[in-house]
Every structure is written in C-alpha cells, then in structure tokens.
C-alpha cells in the first residue's frame, strides 16, 4: 500500500542520509523523497512516499523516531490529506495540430507552458499522483523527451485530527 510519511528532521549535514540509510538498511523502498525548510529554524520537513502495509509503516515510523535528530514521524495518508507533486515535461509538438491539441490538454489540466520552440514544449504541471500521471499519459503519444518530477509533498487537511504518530496506542 502506498503511504506518504512526513518526518521532521534537524537541518544538519548528514541527517537526511541517516533517514535514507535507514530505509535501505531495513529493506524499505523510497518511491519519492522531498525535503524543505519549515517555519521553525533549524528543522526540515522530509516527505517520503513508500510502500508497505500498516505493520511495515508502523515499523518505519518507529525506526525513524528513534533517530536522535528526528522529532516527529507520521503517516499523512492515514488521515484526510492534500498531496501535490510538480512535473516539468519536455514534449514534442511537431505539427500545429499537435501544438493546439497539447494546449487544450494543458488548459484542461490547468498546467502551464513555460518554454517553447518550433517543435517542442516544456510544460509545468502539478497535482496529486493521479492527475499528474494521467496528464503525462495523455501527452505520451506526442513524443516525450524528458520528465522531471519533484516527488510528493503532503499535508493533513484542516479538519482532520493530527495525523497518526508513532507515539500513539500502547495496546494493540
């Protein structure tokens, strides 16, 4: 099962490699990873998308929280949440027809054309996994040259309770 984890880690050299090392040492796969600063100085938010059933996710969170410089590790997926990814897509547009068809798709998906030559376009698209994947799927017939994706960031919705953290239940 796909799961998005949100980990609050000190912004110090080497700390990210400790988290990544933990995933590989324990045999967990990282689908995407993205890291950025938070409101609190010195702390970064690391969003990791990984695969695993509840027991595996629980174990990953516990292993993460054990690290000295990790202050919080939770699964965002377990509660209502908003997830976004951005992709930069270099796609061929060899004919005027192709170009206008692509322009239509860009409008439907609320994407943006950010660069253009006589036979290629670079498109900026963002959204959840399904949206970005579908958009890319629809562009494929035109001829893809390169795709760069940011990996996911996610946040729990305002209505939801604080996401499940590993510090939760003591009975199981």
């Amino acid at each position: 099962m796909r799961n998005t984890l949100s980990i609050l880690v000190a912004n110090e050299p080497g700390e990210l490699s400790r988290i990544v090392g933990l995933f590989s040492a324990r045999g967990y796969n990282i689908e995407t990873i993205s890291v950025g600063k938070t409101l609190e100085e010195g702390w970064s938010r690391c969003t990791i998308v990984t695969e695993g059933d509840d027991a595996v996710i629980d174990q990953i969170l516990k292993q993460c929280i054990r690290l000295a410089r990790v202050r919080e590790a939770k699964s965002v997926t377990s509660l209502p949440h908003i997830e976004r990814e951005m992709a930069l897509i270099d796609v061929s547009a060899r004919t005027p027809d192709n170009r206008s068809e692509i322009k239509n798709l860009v409008d439907i998906f609320r994407a943006k054309i950010v660069d253009i030559t006589h036979d290629r376009l670079i498109i900026e698209a963002s959204g959840n996994k399904e949206k970005v994947d579908r958009f890319i799927g629809l562009l494929e017939p035109f001829g893809m040259n390169e795709i760069v994706r940011t990996g996911y960031v996610a946040i729990n919705t305002l209505g939801s309770a604080a996401a499940r953290t590993m510090a939760g239940d003591s009975t199981s």
Binding site: A55, D58, A167, S170, T171, S172
Partner: peptide, 13 residues
C-alpha cells in the same frame, strides 16, 4: 518502541 511488534506482535505492550 521499534522493538514492539518488529518481529512478533504482542497483545499488550
């Protein structure tokens, strides 16, 4: 905490 349920799921932890 990572030892709890790592290999064997307890009934009470």
């Amino acid at each position: 905490p990572s030892n709890i349920g790592k290999v064997k799921q307890p009934h009470i932890s």
